[in-house]
Nucleic acid binder design. Sequence first.
RNA 1: CCAGGUGUGGCGGAAUGGCAGACGCACAGGACUUAAAAUCCUGAGAGGGCAACUUCGUGUGGGUUCAAGUCCCACCACCUGGACCA
Length: 809
Amino acid sequence: MNYTEIEKKWNKIWEDTKIYKFDNKNLDKKFYLLEMFSYPSGASLHLGHWWNFGLSDSFGRFKRLQGYNVFQPMGFDAFGLPAENYAIKTGIHPEDSTRHNIKVMEEQLKAMGATFNWDYELITCNPDYYKWTQWLFIQLYKNGLAYQKEAPVNYCPSCNTIIANEQVVDGVCERCGSTILRKNMKQWFFKITKYAEELLSGLDTIDWPEKTKALQRNWIGKSVGAEVDFKVDGLDEKLTVFTSRADTLYGVTFLVIAPEHKLLSKLIKPEYKKQVEDYILQSSKKDEITRTSSTSPKTGVFTGTYVINPLTSEKVPLFVADYVISTYATGIVMGVAAHDSRDYDFAKKYNLPIKQVIEKCEGETELPFTEYGKLVNSAEFDGFSSEEAKTKIVEKLEKMGEGRFKINYKLHDWSVARQRYWGCPIPIIYCKHCGTVPVPEKDLPVKLPHITDYKPDGSGPLGKCEEYMNTTCPICGRPARREADTLDTFVCSSFYMLRYPESLHNNDEIFNRDYCNKMLPVDCYVGGVEHATGHLLYSRFITKFLRDIGKLDFDEPFKRLFHQGMVLGPDGKKMSKRNTSRTADDYIKEYGSDALRLHMMFSLKYVDGGIWNDEGLKHIKAFMERVERIILKWQNDKGTSKKYEAEEKELDFVLNRTIKEVAENFETFSFNSAVARIMELVNAMYKYDTVKEKNGQLMEKTIKNLLIILSPSAPHFTEELWEQIGEKYSIFNQRYPKYDESKIALDTVEIAVQINSKIIARIDIDSNLSNEEVLKVVKENEKVASLINGKTIVKEIVVPKRIVNLIVK
RNA sequence: CCAGGUGUGGCGGAAUGGCAGACGCACAGGACUUAAAAUCCUGAGAGGGCAACUUCGUGUGGGUUCAAGUCCCACCACCUGGACCA
């Protein structure tokens, strides 16, 4: 068979006959299968693309055979930094390179012959898409969930721009090597923290990998504790700390405040002003990662100020130290040197007192002791357990009005503004008279202008485009200015799965509520684990928000999630031009795309990935030829068998078991096992082929079923053979075969017999016997009988069709 | 440091608590061939034994169980995240 030719042939026929068109009128058995859409890069499809798209296409084809109306759309996440950086380097406008790359990728993805629903294609940099990105922004704004606030950013004084955390290497700019400054700038945020609790609890309702759920739980970082107010000595001011260990409150010997804290300037005693200001300057030069690394030495200085412990009325010193972060909780912590290792280190270094208030329930207590124990030196709470005290102490503080129970999350609000050109414009207008005004929905989209000077300079490049910036206020009609920043691309991708089903058909609303409720949630979502705390969290947030404003009725966008593992180069690193000598196209030319796909399915575990090895490709091709030979041989063999012989039963058994297990394996993305089962069936066919009197009907049934079962994994190859054995187009309009349970239940099964848990014999036994009858047969067995003779059986265990275990004394 | 994941032949990898190593590769043997390749068939975890058979085996050490790769505890190694989260 000439694989190149048949691939061309069938790709064309499939496209011409629109065999995979999604039937959007008939949603009773819809299946929404989604692969994370990709960023349009210019290079040709590499093995990773085949791994991602080819195998999920196979899954889609499998669901289609099962009778599902499969919706598997495709599109591009087209805004973003790479195009812009490429543009800055080459001078090619991001719009031009992006459009070009999309075209190239579309052609190549179509050439895969995959079943994607191209008529629903969606491209995030198209105005008819980003109109809805802007609409979403405005809804968030109107509901108080999009807001501006001052927040620290990484600023490079030599490149004159804000840079992302990832571009800061050891505190310096990765491009020019200048020391990065931490600067407060006014920025746009989405209030994802409003949904912290629900994002956490919702994880229990979805079928996702545990690993991914754990990543999100960690990221959200719920911490249950209390806030405690400390009065400032000599000032009418109080400092609030957050603690998860209220039981250690009697052990507080100092307080620590973050260098960026707003109240700090008021709290410094004049004689300490210089040293504190020097310290603040020093720490502003460190980036957050170096500063907060647990391995960095703890530093800090005294402010000259004392605060008063509400329970003991003791005066304790207030320090400023950069191991405390201003953005978590209140930005002030209580120092309990005896029961926190950081506080312990700090106290040792600055000679602060260490006061033990918890002791181990049994044995010597060694400081710092950070576990729960029994309270000591804590007035009326002495003898309480840590757990009890955590409640009782806060209850007391509540009565005094100086503390309260509090839950904190590590999750921060989502910073969405980018001082970049190639992104979705933020639909906001600033008017001197009316303030911040959202663009009216009827005026959307705010189109991204085609400008040529898009170099980043710290403020949005759009700011230099006067035509764009100058507008009129929608409220008062007087001249006003637009927002110059654009949106993070993760905003674009946070709702695309909701928009897909009617992407090009509905220009009146983001999506129709009823239709959306029928099409979603996504039944199966496939994509990389690296999006666990980004895209996957944002999408969940936006879905919950849209539910709250009445646009849809479900809580979670992705019911089921799979991550592909990564296909790695021979050096165990991510595939690149450097470590791979051959492209997907090279392999396809030599072996065909079906062989490539089958090899990928069979040789690595899909969810784990692994090092790419092309060794097996020729064997997979050999396997395909083995399939072809037996099918072509059997198609004209009418057989002569009259009775249903043992050999026929065996083939029928393997056939039915294969039908059953391949489906189960596909369902869990265990493609390697699915292919193994199919190989077993082929082996069984070759074995049956040696029988002289063969059953023609069984052979016909077997080759047809084999082709259907194999078709999702080798679509062109099986479609071609389906035609060659004289069947009607198309194999993909067939149904996945049903298996016959009675054929899988064998008449006799081999049972392993154990005496005292050790296997001593294997006996063929009628599978219909009851446990008692099985035991009888086993005990009559010569070997068993001789071994149990004269001994007492104390226990008999029968596992039907598997094991009999006799415990004797 | 913390969290999560992984650990099974020479290799990729299978195993609802129930015969570990399915399937495939590499390997060995046989058939076909002048020969090779391809194809078809057979064998095979490791050690011991001519053999029937036997001992040991899923990172290490313990535990639960009639029965553990699978469940529990501790440890080791590797991978991936997170970094002092109060």
